[in-house]
Simulated assay, not measured.
Amino acid sequence: MKKTVDPADKRFKIAHREALIGVILVIINFIWWYGFAYGLGSGKVEDYTYVFGLPAWFFYSCIAGFVVMVVLVTIAVTFFFKDVPFEDKEGESK
């Protein structure tokens, strides 16, 4: 017998919310990366400023951006994501 999926299942609402949070984090990451990489890196090479021996655009877009995203993802997972069982409840017939 084939099981049907109940679209009103609470797990789907949680999964959709968590997926939306993930998409928002990806958009934030891209905006951060693009803004610093093409904002600071659009001048002449002679005009670059350096942070720890790296061009500032690279440091802020790739190194600092990575650290910021690790912090944001950790906060999102800790405070907004929920542990959801994958199986249906026992005794529940679908």
Rank of each mutant, 00 (worst) to 15 (best):
Y60P: 00
K2Q: 11
V5K: 05
V26Y: 05
V70L: 14
K3G: 02
V84M: 04
V70W: 14
F59H: 03
P55S: 06
F12E: 07
K82V: 00
G91R: 02
F12S: 04
G41C: 08
G91E: 11
V51N: 01
Y50M: 06
R17C: 03
F58D: 00
V67M: 09
Y50L: 03
D83G: 05
E90D: 11
K94V: 13
I75D: 01
V68C: 08
E87V: 05
L25P: 06
W33R: 11
D9F: 09
T4V: 12
T78D: 03
T74R: 10
V71E: 02
F81Y: 15
T78M: 12
A8I: 00
D83N: 14
F86K: 14
C62P: 00
F79S: 03
L72A: 11
A19E: 04
L25I: 08
V68A: 12
L40H: 06
T49A: 10
K94T: 14
N29F: 15
G41K: 09
L72S: 03
W57N: 15
K82H: 05
D88V: 04
A56R: 08
Y38V: 03
S42V: 04
D6R: 12
Y34D: 09
H16N: 12
A8D: 11
F66I: 02
F52C: 02
S61E: 02
F66W: 12
R17W: 08
G35D: 03
F86G: 15
F59E: 06
P85C: 09
D6M: 03
V51F: 15
G53W: 01
S93N: 11
A64I: 08
F59R: 04
G39N: 07
V67D: 04
V68P: 00
F81A: 04
F52L: 13
G35N: 04
G35P: 11
E46T: 13
T78C: 04
Y38M: 10
E46N: 04
F59G: 04
A15C: 10
Y34N: 14
G91A: 05
L20H: 06
K10Q: 09
W57I: 01
K82T: 01
F79P: 00
E46D: 12
I24M: 10
C62D: 14
C62S: 15
G35L: 06
E92V: 15
N29R: 06
I21N: 05
D9S: 07
I75V: 14
W33F: 15
G43L: 03
G53T: 01
I27L: 14
G22T: 09
F36M: 09
E92Q: 11
V5T: 12
I21E: 01
I28E: 02
P85A: 15
K44W: 05
A64L: 15
F30H: 10
E18Q: 15
F30N: 05
F86I: 11
G65M: 01
A56S: 13
Y48R: 12
E87N: 08
H16L: 14
Y48D: 10
G39F: 09
D6G: 04
A76R: 08
D47M: 05
I24K: 12
A15K: 14
I75G: 02
I24L: 13
M69N: 05
F79M: 08
V51A: 06
E92T: 10
E92W: 07
L25N: 10
R11I: 02
F12I: 04
I63D: 00
F58S: 02
D47Q: 12
A19P: 00
E46G: 08
A19R: 09
D83P: 00
